[in-house]
């Protein structure tokens, strides 16, 4: 079944307490290779039938109106994936 993936990330200028806490924990378990962590969300919207332009447009609308809070988050990806690669 085809799906649309939506990625939502906190805006770069907005504090990301989640990412900060993880970034602090990584060196404590000996993983020193990372300078920053940002934590986002991934949504998968399943579609019955083909993904038309109209459905994709609906997904974009969902992404900006419901799935993300435009005040603090950016939608960074709205993309169709097929199950083979998921």
């Amino acid at each position: 079944m085809p799906r649309i993936v939506v990625d939502v990330m906190p805006k770069p200028e907005i504090l990301d307490p989640q990412g900060k806490a993880i970034a602090g924990a990584l060196p404590r378990i000996g993983l020193n290779g990372f300078s920053e962590v940002r934590q986002g969300k991934r949504f998968e919207l399943a579609v019955d039938g083909d993904i038309t332009d109209e459905v994709l447009e609906q997904a974009r609308t969902a992404a900006t109106t419901l799935l993300s809070n435009p005040v603090i988050e950016d939608v960074t990806r709205v993309e169709v994936i097929d199950d083979g690669s998921a």
Partner: peptide, 14 residues
């Protein structure tokens, strides 16, 4: 112009 946050996010753990 550099982007400035429209709202502040709290970090209760901090």
């Amino acid at each position: 112009p550099s982007k400035r946050p429209a709202v502040q996010v709290g970090d209760p753990f901090a």
